[in-house]
């Protein structure tokens, strides 16, 4: 078990390293190969109207004249150990996970990312609770009453939920519930949970529901299929033959087994979501990682893009790792070796 975890962690780190190399290459090597000069990179920092000399000075200071490999090494070192930047006027220290400074805001990327991920995390966790509860419950009921009116309508709604894009459902619900009826908070409303938990939940209610609807649909279908399969298993018959009440049979024996694949999918979904619920955040004007990524890309803000990409990769890799470990907990037959 311990060796398995160590091996998996090493693998995860290697994966992150590869992701960082690839993204770095895309943003720094490819433009160079395409003919961009070091000055072109530096020009983004100093803004328009700077003299060529200033640009050269900045390029020199930020090391844009070095070979790309050296630049990558420096970038990596920044993440692991932090970097000192010579601003000309003095030395700026950028502590450990240092992704550099945003071209646009001139602020270090990492604290910004941390700020933004609070929003995304709030959005993700709330929605996840809703979609798990709603999706699994619907799926179980549908499976137990296969072919009934409930099953058919639930599966119909699920199909709609899967197929409708979030910006569509998001916009519609915003215009009805927030701007029309005034039941929910308008787009862009955000209070940190530590300041006012109630307001936090109230603000996020509509994004949660919209996002959860999308995922709940998938989970309802998944649970339904899983339950239909497990309820036909021999051990279900055994549980009934013991004289267990039907609810116990369904929950303790059926659902327990049907949940295993859902745990897997859930881990991966959640990891991906943490990388940025781009559409949801844009629709509800929430300043999360997704919106940060979109803005960074729009502005060609390379350090910010690098940072958000690596953070998203980290979430996915960690989610994968957690899912694999969780699998062994959920299913005792899985031996990690």
């Amino acid at each position: 078990m311990v060796t398995y975890i160590i091996r998996r962690v090493i693998g995860a780190l290697a994966m992150l390293l590869i992701v960082s190399i690839v993204t770095f290459a895309i943003f720094f090597l490819v433009p160079r190969l395409a003919g961009a000069t070091p000055e072109a990179f530096a020009a983004r920092y100093v803004g328009r109207g700077a003299s060529m000399d200033t640009i050269r000075l900045v390029a020199e200071r930020l090391g844009f004249y070095d070979p790309v490999a050296v630049q990558y090494g420096r970038f990596l070192k920044g993440i692991v150990a932090g970097t000192e930047y010579d601003t000309g006027a003095g030395v700026d220290h950028c502590p450990a996970p240092c992704f550099g400074y945003s071209f646009i805001t001139q602020q270090p990327v990492w604290p910004n990312l941390m700020d933004r991920s609070r929003v995304t995390l709030s959005l993700g966790i709330g929605a996840a609770v809703l979609w798990l509860v709603g999706g699994v419950a619907t799926g179980v009921l549908s499976a137990l009453r296969r072919g009934s009116f409930f099953d058919r309508s639930a599966m119909g709604i699920a199909l709609a939920g899967v197929s409708l894009p979030i910006f569509f459902t998001g916009m519609i619900s915003l215009s009805i519930f927030s701007y029309g009826l005034g039941w929910t908070a308008p787009g862009g409303a955000w209070v940190d949970v530590t300041i006012d938990p109630l307001q936090w939940a109230y603000n996020l209610l509509l994004p949660w529901i919209t996002l959860a609807l999308l995922f709940a649909a998938t989970y309802a279908r998944l649970t339904r299929a899983g339950m239909l399969e497990t309820m036909g298993e021999d051990y279900i018959r055994t549980a009934r033959a013991k004289g267990l009440v039907e609810r116990g049979v369904v929950v303790k024996h059926g659902l327990r087994a049907a949940l295993t694949p859902i745990v897997t999918v859930f881990g991966l979904d959640f990891g991906l979501l943490m990388g940025g619920a781009v559409l949801t955040e844009s629709t509800f004007s929430l300043n999360g990682l997704g919106k940060y990524a979109v803005d960074a890309i729009k502005n060609n803000d390379l350090p910010a893009v690098m940072g958000v990409t690596l953070l998203a990769a980290l979430f996915v890799v960690v989610a994968n790792l957690v899912v694999d470990l969780l699998y062994a907990v959920v299913d005792p037959r899985v031996r990690l070796a």
Binding site: Y235, T238, A239, A241, R256, A257, D331, P332
Partner: peptide
Amino acid sequence: KKMAMIFQDPLSAMHPY
């Protein structure tokens, strides 16, 4: 309690979890 059953394939008849 009063009547019980033994099934054919104990591997699939017992809950794996």
